[in-house]
Amino acid sequence: MTNQENKSAKTALITGASSGIGYELAKLFAKDGYNLVLVARSTEKLNELGGQFWDEYGVETVVITKDLSKEDAARDVYNQVKEKNITVDILVNDAGVGTYGLFATETDWEKEKSLIHLNVLTTTLLTKLFLKDMVERNEGKILNLASIASITPTPLMAVYAATKAYIYNFTQSLINELKDTNVSVTALLPNATDTDFFNKAGATNAKVTDNLDDAVVVAKDAYNALMKGASKVIPGGLGNKAQEIMAYLTPQETLAQMMRKNMEPKNTAQTEEKSNKAAWAWGIGIAAVVIAGAAVALAYNNSNVVDKARYRYKAGKLKSGADDVYTDVKDALLSGLDNVKDAVATAKEVVAKARETFTEAVS
């Protein structure tokens, strides 16, 4: 890529770009020829990344060193971008932190106040400033990092989960406000991911860290969804998506208890751990059945009159097949699944059987 071509390229601004999901997203943008504005606290690391992206992809990088948890940090970033006459085509609000422990007795207020400022205030103001420019141009995209915790109560990380619930709700509201424009906003809801997040939050001993998603996979799924203008993306496989369905179906008290066990230290009683895994397995199994049912309903509604007649004629067979599937899942769960991966495998079988039965019913 020549310098002239590079100067005409679009630009993505990424906060929290020095590591984790933000870094992986920056690589994807650079690979696709986007110039970058990278924002984080480490000047040395950002400069290193800028050199790397220039050498590998020939894209220009502007580095803004900023602690985004500080007052007016977002406005200062925006002002620096405007002073450099840079048009931000895509904004990625990736920077975020967490705290771990009992809110009443173990966590520190100053850290929580900083967390709220970074996760909520900075993200909101950056969105407001750059979104206004995008709407005026009638073009642009924004990716806001929420979390799977944004749709579940999360004891031991209560303030973090609350800030992510704000981001998710905020994003979905903006999507509706922007529906008549060419500007899109996407919420990213990853599950626990293999980054430095848990280390910084003081939660490296939490049970949830035993099963972490790959930041590379999370970033790739997020990038693809952002480019499509999707309203949200839950990266990873069926287990993560089933967890979303479970969050909507399970009573909040039960969900909070399940999440509490998932966030507890690893050295708790083994019986409690098995109980927690069984609960998650049940939830994932139920969610998978719901997903399969929704797929069948959608296919039925989109069928023509003849296919609908065939479907109704063979509905008894479908019910019988579904009952058999339910029995299989129930027996497997009652016998004790070793881990959630086994539950996911069972859930996949549920979906496959439901799809097979439906196909046979309408053929």
Rank of each mutant, 00 (worst) to 15 (best):
T2C: 05
Q4P: 00
E5K: 14
A9N: 15
T11D: 07
T15L: 12
S18K: 02
S19V: 05
E24L: 08
Y34D: 03
L38E: 05
T43Y: 05
E48A: 13
E48Q: 15
L49F: 12
W54D: 14
Y57C: 12
G58D: 11
V62L: 14
K70Q: 11
E71P: 04
D72V: 09
A74D: 10
A74M: 07
V77I: 15
N79E: 15
K82R: 15
E83F: 06
E83H: 14
K84G: 05
I86L: 13
T87P: 01
G96R: 01
E106T: 01
D108F: 05
E110S: 12
K111G: 02
E112I: 07
S114T: 09
S114K: 13
L115P: 02
N119G: 06
L131P: 03
E136A: 11
E139Q: 13
E139K: 12
A149W: 00
I151Y: 04
I167L: 11
Y168D: 09
Y168N: 11
S173I: 04
I175T: 06
T181Q: 09
A187E: 06
L189Y: 03
T193R: 07
A203I: 01
A203T: 03
A206P: 02
D210H: 06
D210W: 00
N211F: 04
D214T: 04
D214R: 07
A215F: 01
A215I: 00
V217C: 00
A219S: 08
D221P: 08
N224K: 13
A225D: 06
A225R: 03
A225T: 04
A230F: 04
G239V: 07
M258W: 09
R260W: 10
Q270T: 12
W282L: 05
G283P: 01
G283A: 08
I284A: 05
V289Q: 03
L298E: 15
Y300R: 10
Y300K: 09
N302A: 10
N302M: 11
K317G: 10
A322G: 08
D324Y: 10
A332R: 10
L334A: 13
D338K: 15
V340G: 01
E349N: 13
E349H: 08
A352Y: 11
A352W: 09
A361D: 07
